[in-house]
Simulated assay, not measured.
Amino acid sequence: MVTVEFKKKSCNLVSVALKGHAESVDEGYDLVCCAVSSISQTILIGIVEVLKLKIDYSIDDGFLSFSLEDLSIDEIKECQVLMETMLLGLKSVELNYGEYIKVKVEEV
């Protein structure tokens, strides 16, 4: 199962960590894993390559995390459309494939 944990501070999404594998079908054919990876990596690319913001991130097999907490408040706000889009996209996957992915948001 993929677990997704967003952290929210002062109404802004400031970090996300995705862990695990969906294992909905055989490796290489797992549409849930593909959707989760595509959504999360596209948002990360948007922040790093399009907005040109320097953030801490980590990617490994079955793991992706990044944090905006070292950015200025203006930069964090600039990322919110992407972060909210990521949250909505992953919640949509969860709605259809909830046995393979759990998404939660924690206020910190």
Score class of each variant (00 low, 15 high):
3 T>G: 08
5 E>I: 09
5 E>S: 09
5 E>L: 08
6 F>D: 00
6 F>T: 02
6 F>Q: 03
7 K>V: 13
7 K>N: 08
8 K>L: 11
9 K>G: 05
10 S>V: 11
12 N>L: 06
12 N>Q: 14
12 N>I: 03
13 L>E: 06
13 L>S: 03
14 V>N: 00
15 S>E: 10
16 V>R: 02
18 L>A: 03
18 L>T: 02
19 K>H: 09
19 K>Y: 06
20 G>W: 02
21 H>I: 11
21 H>F: 05
22 A>S: 14
23 E>P: 01
23 E>G: 10
23 E>V: 11
24 S>T: 11
25 V>I: 15
26 D>K: 15
26 D>W: 14
26 D>E: 15
27 E>R: 13
27 E>H: 15
27 E>S: 13
28 G>T: 10
29 Y>Q: 15
31 L>D: 12
32 V>N: 02
32 V>G: 01
33 C>H: 01
34 C>P: 08
34 C>M: 10
36 V>D: 02
37 S>T: 08
37 S>K: 00
38 S>P: 00
39 I>K: 00
39 I>P: 02
40 S>A: 12
41 Q>V: 14
41 Q>K: 13
42 T>N: 10
42 T>H: 09
42 T>E: 06
43 I>F: 07
43 I>Q: 03
43 I>K: 00
43 I>P: 02
44 L>T: 14
44 L>V: 11
45 I>D: 15
46 G>F: 09
48 V>Q: 15
49 E>H: 12
50 V>K: 13
51 L>E: 10
52 K>L: 14
53 L>Q: 09
56 D>F: 14
57 Y>N: 11
58 S>R: 15
58 S>V: 15
59 I>C: 10
60 D>A: 14
60 D>M: 07
61 D>Y: 06
61 D>Q: 10
62 G>Q: 12
62 G>S: 00
62 G>K: 07
62 G>C: 00
62 G>N: 11
63 F>T: 08
63 F>H: 11
65 S>R: 12
66 F>M: 09
68 L>I: 13
68 L>F: 09
69 E>T: 02
70 D>T: 15
70 D>H: 13
70 D>C: 09
70 D>K: 14
71 L>I: 12
71 L>S: 11
71 L>F: 04
72 S>Q: 12
72 S>G: 12
75 E>S: 15
76 I>K: 01
76 I>R: 04
77 K>I: 13
78 E>T: 13
78 E>N: 15
79 C>W: 01
80 Q>L: 09
81 V>P: 04
84 E>H: 09
85 T>G: 08
86 M>Q: 06
86 M>E: 04
87 L>T: 01
87 L>V: 03
88 L>W: 08
93 V>P: 02
93 V>I: 11
93 V>F: 05
95 L>T: 01
97 Y>T: 07
97 Y>D: 07
99 E>R: 11
99 E>P: 03
102 K>Y: 01
103 V>C: 04
106 E>G: 04
107 E>I: 14
107 E>Y: 01
108 V>Y: 07
